[in-house]
Every structure is written in C-alpha cells, then in structure tokens.
Design a protein around this nucleic acid. Structure first.
Lengths: 224, 224
DNA sequence: AGACTCTGTAACCATTTTGTTACATAGCCC
DNA sequence: GGGCTATGTAACAAAATGGTTACAGAGTCT
C-alpha cells in the first residue's frame, strides 16, 4: 500500500480529519487548502490519488482537474461535493474524475472507495485497453471487439491474442509464446501453440477474410 | 461501508451486545458508556445514527440530545428506555428524537427500526448509493433494490455484490474477491467464491431472467 | 433445547477448454 | 515435380472449470 494521496479542501478541520484518518491507514498524505502549488506537485511527483473539494472558493475543483488532464496528468480523483444533483455528478465524471462522494461523508466509505480506486488504477497501469487496427482488446472486461463487434474468446485465446497484440509487428516464436501465454513451469509440445493459434485465427478471421495473424514459416507468428 | 452508528449505554454488556450485532450487520459502530466525548464526535464526524440510553446516570439522554440539536447536530436518535410511560415517550419526541425502543428489547426489532430510520434519513442523499442498471445498492441501510423492489441480502451477499458493482465491467478473479469480500487473513477455498456467487445469482436473477453476474470461464466473475 | 439461518466444504455431474495425436496440405529447396 | 519440412485441420481424450446440491458447523432466535 503506502500510496501518496493529495487532498485539497478549504475547510481546515475537514482536511485534518481526512489526513489523520488516511495516515492511520498507512497512506502518505499532503493537504492543501487551495489549488495553489498543487498543479506543480501533480506534474512533478508521482501522486496516486487526489481528493478534491469541488466547491473551493475561486476555482471549481473539476475545472482544475480538467486543466490538469490537458497537460497529461492522469491522477485519479475523488471529488468531495456538497451538491448531490445528478447533473453535477455527471459533469464530474465527464471531466475524467473517477469518483465522487457527497459531504457530509462517512470516513470509512471514503477509505473504501479510495482503496478500490487505487486497486483499480494500479491494475490499469499494466492493463487497460489495447488496440490494433480494428481490433480492440479490453483487458478489464476481457472482451474482444473487431470493428465494434464483440467476439467471445476463451481464456487461452484471450491471453494469446493479448501477447500478440502487445508485440505487434514482432515475430514471436513458439518458445516465447509457450513461456508467456502458457507459463513457464509446465512443458508442452510446440504443436500446442500451433493448434491454439489456429483456433484463435478461426474466430477472428471468420469475421472477415482479413488475415490478422500471419504465420512466419520456420519462426513463429505475428500480428502485422 | 455501512452507516456509522454511535451507541451510548452505561451497561457495558448491553453496549457490547448492541455493538456486536450491528457490526455483524455490516455497520460501523462506536460505543460509549457516558456522553463524554460524544458531543465532540457528533459535531466533527458524520454520524448516521445515535442510539442513546435515556436513563444514563447524571445527564438525561434526551437532555443531551436537546443540547446537540441546539448546536445544529441533526443526527437521528433511537432512545433506549426502561420506562414506557406515555409522558416520557412524548417528551422524547418533542425534543426531536426519532424513535424509541423500550428495554428489554429485541435485537431484530432494533435493527429493523434502525434500518427504517437510516433509509428515511438517507433517502434524499445520493450519498452511499451505488447504482448499476436497474440495481441500486443503498450502502447506508444496506439494502438492495432491483427495479425498486427490495430484495433481502445477507451480509456476505451484500458485500459481494458491492464489490462487483463498484468494479463493474471488470472481471474479478476469485483471489481478488476472497481478499476484498472475505478479508485477507483467513484462508478459504476458491470454490467458496463459486458457491457464494451462485447464491447471490439465485436471488438477483430470480427476479427477472436477466443475467447480471456473468461468469468468465477460467478467470472469474463480472457485472456487465 | 430446538428450529432456523448463514456459510464453508465436499461431492457429483455437465460442459467447456485444451493438449495431443494423426493425417492432410502447403511451402520451399533442388 | 519430387522430396522434405513446416503448418493446418480434424478428431479424440484428458483436464479443467463451474453449477448444483447436500451436509455440517457455527451462531442466533424463540
């Protein structure tokens, strides 16, 4: 754990309350009563999560986050908001915020959501979505879309396509695939790869006569 | 997670009994044997409900609540009272208390009323609600609604659905679920997840032939 | 104490997935 | 084209996986 969390909240007692509780949970925190200095911090340091009051005097919290997004800051955000109108909530999400929580709030609830987000974003760091031409692999839901059409894949097929797609234009030999898709310990024939590849081909080439997976004779397979 | 409930009761065994049962229901509790420190807590933290003995040595419970109301604390109260004379009851209501229950009392009855109150007071808050399609999880009262219909869930089922719903569209594997729903310390078989999921499925899919929880073979489960 | 609920575990079965094998086919060299 | 190898294909068997049910233990309520 030990994530670094920045909190922006103008009411000092609330700020302290949050900091106190988060630190008790083992997080590193830094609190601000305004967005001053925060942008610099977000750009320069690795901040894992931002807790942001939406109703700051002066700048709108979501406005601020919007600006951050434009300069490439991806830090997930939990908004604290006294408002609970749906429009506001939606707006928050539209701007790329990850969650919101309405004041007054329950500390346990905040910590719970916060942990959920950290977990998710940590996952997303290695995963997310992979795209290749008109193929899209959603690593979260483990879904494959070709030209927007959902195609069901088994676990093996998914993992195989995943490795292929993240090494597109590179020819992967059977040993590499066995090691990365099947896992290092067990021993398989290399014809296994063969069959697996073809089962995958059947599914994704069936859609169109397009050929996504190219076999490179004597070497292996590639997506190109 | 659940609502935060503060209990003030000078008889320690009763206090513990209540705390134990409420926590079993998934609520966060904090118990006190006197009103000392309670006022501060009520002012600073978001307490969802106060359970208050009316016959505390020293301060009258309702007296205390009255003082709290004067400084703007709106926390709903359930009084525990050995008396059941009408005059006392009326007085309790006059002072702004929300409900009373006479000792000795039935724990189920207490929880029932408590949930009713939480539901009422948290109805208009968007706070503590997670929504997915026509499923609504009320985190405050820990109730599930599907198309407005209330469906009873056990603690485990609720927590499981909560985790699924807060990670919608993401396939969660059994390890993740075990860790987050069951808690990290104890060790369980992963078939445990299996059975729990299906018990949950039975309840929420029973309503309609809709399939909310999708099992992703070889990986885990997801809400999508 | 007895009935009941909740929940973890085990057993059973159906189904899907996957590895292997055998054979057919295609590519490549001479 | 012949011969060789690599790859595709189909069929089969084994393994993995998950749904379902039954049961037992723990805890609770009456």
């Amino acid at each position: 754990m030990g994530a670094f969390i920045v909190i922006v909240e103008d009411e000092e007692d609330i700020l302290e309350l949050i900091e106190y509780n988060l630190e008790k949970e083992g997080f590193d925190t830094m609190g601000f009563t305004s967005t001053k200095n925060v942008s610099q911090l977000l750009e320069e340091e690795e901040v894992d999560l931002l807790i942001m009051d939406r109703n700051l005097p002066g700048v709108e919290g979501s406005e601020f986050v919007g600006q951050m997004r434009e300069v490439g800051v991806e830090t997930p955000v939990i908004y604290l908001t006294a408002k609970n109108k749906e429009s506001d909530i939606e707006e928050g999400f539209e701007r790329g915020g990850d969650d919101y929580i309405t004041k007054p709030f329950n500390m346990k609830e905040l910590i719970l959501r916060l942990k959920a987000i950290l977990k998710r974003t940590q996952k997303d760091k290695t995963e997310g979505k992979v795209v290749y031409r008109d193929i899209t692999l959603d690593l979260g839901s483990r879904e494959l879309f070709i030209e927007g059409k959902n195609i069901e894949l088994t676990k093996l097929e998914f993992d195989l396509l995943h490795t292929l797609i993240s090494n597109q234009n590179i020819v992967l030999d059977r040993d590499y695939l066995l090691e990365h898709v099947w896992g290092g310990d067990a021993i398989y024939q290399d014809r296994t790869v063969n069959v697996a590849i073809n089962r995958l081909k059947e599914k994704i080439d069936a859609e169109k006569s397009k050929e996504y997976i190219k076999t490179v004779r004597g070497v292996g397979y590639t997506l190109c």
